[in-house]
Design a protein around this nucleic acid. Structure first.
Lengths: 208, 208
DNA sequence: TGAAGTTTATTAAAATATTCACAATCTTAA
DNA sequence: TTAAGATTGTGAATATTTTAATAAACTTCA
């Protein structure tokens, strides 16, 4: 696996999860085959863009027929890490961290949340069956092979990031409000509701 | 305001919130002026890209000097809707919805969360000083001029979206796990942790 | 079985986005 | 006040991404 013919464009990479999500929904609805034109209306991406995107993962469709939904899902799962069973950690066991622990769709999608960390002593313990350790014991408790952390702390953000990078984390899903810096080789995906609203406001304004 | 010289490229639009966030941090650190080269290291975007991006909002810098941080922040605030005092609503008062209500950075950044809605009767009431109404009373209680909704429901997702669109919502920050469909003219920003992790996994794999 | 009708995969063209390179213009320090 | 030094803003060049166009190949129904 992971022997992609050529490098996949960044733009395409960002659309893969959108496709996967849509395909899962279609699968649930009982749809067994789909054509790029149909899928296009569903995800609001041009059919030709969809076909090109898919082509980076191989020749997944059949002429005159379309794509087999469940086969597509399998391929995407494979390439998007579905089989990797990523070991994830949550850093910050506040409101948001707890809400995320309570998400029940983690397993068998990308992996599982193994444990969480927090500075504040009164949050240490176990929540929703996920153990919460003191941040000071990060290196002791971080799961073997753990590469991705979900960051929901609200204080000492950059310091915490440094600790994570030090512990070998390669990807951070960043829920903080602050701007964080990481060395080359570490990826950050910022989840900032405020920023998203700003984008929405700006786009809405630009249109009218 | 909002009389931009030309249309701002989509790619640039997505970077604006990144700049604003970084500039706020710099401002807090007491930095009063900054050059594109310095800012570049901070946000990991090429200096020339930064300058071009800024140029869409006007001639904000001075040759041989750089940019005035607080002046920049003002301009961005203006264009990113900081002055609009958006009226926001949260739809879905579950774990995540509550966590978002508890965020304390809303005010004077893009606007305020005026109220929330939920289907389940036992969640109706008031949380963190934000009133929660039954979804059936959406049209009664939706604030005047409200354009943006934050969606955190876990059931009947598409049905809820339809209600929102019907009520005049133009932008949705989507925290659900499902794929949603909206008519042209309505924008969706999906916040999907699972998708983000998938992107991270994929990127990390692509590199090695 | 074969011909008509579809739809993919892909080459080529168009549109977007990024980066280069440098003139214009500001700062700063003597 | 002026000259040296620095950095912006922007045409031009490059790179990337999207879209158009179509040949190849599959399905389906008579």
């Amino acid at each position: 696996m992971n022997n992609l013919k050529y490098t996949v464009p960044k733009a395409t990479l960002q659309r893969f999860p959108v496709y996967l999500k849509a395909l899962r929904k279609l699968d649930n609805l009982g749809v067994q085959r789909i054509m790029s034109r149909e899928l296009s209306e569903f995800v609001d991406i041009e059919p030709t863009t969809i076909r090109r995107d898919f082509s980076f993962l191989g020749s997944l469709g059949k002429q005159g027929y379309g794509y087999d939904v469940s086969a597509l899902i399998k391929v995407f799962d494979q390439h998007l890490g579905g089989q990797f069973e990523e070991k994830l950690i949550i850093v910050g066991a506040g409101n948001l961290g707890r809400a995320l622990m309570n998400y029940n769709r983690w397993n068998h999608v990308v992996g599982e949340i193994v444990c969480a960390f927090d500075i504040e002593a009164n949050k240490i313990g176990s929540m929703y069956e996920i153990p919460v350790y003191p941040l000071s014991e990060l290196k002791q408790h971080i799961p073997e092979g753990c590469r991705i952390a979900i960051l929901t702390v609200s204080k000492d953000v950059q310091e915490t990031v440094n600790l994570l990078v030090d512990a070998g984390i390669k990807g951070i899903v960043d829920f903080t409000h602050e701007h964080i810096q990481v060395p080359k080789g570490v990826k950050v995906k910022a989840v900032d509701v405020v920023s998203m609203i700003q984008e929405l406001v700006f786009e809405t304004n630009s249109i009218s």
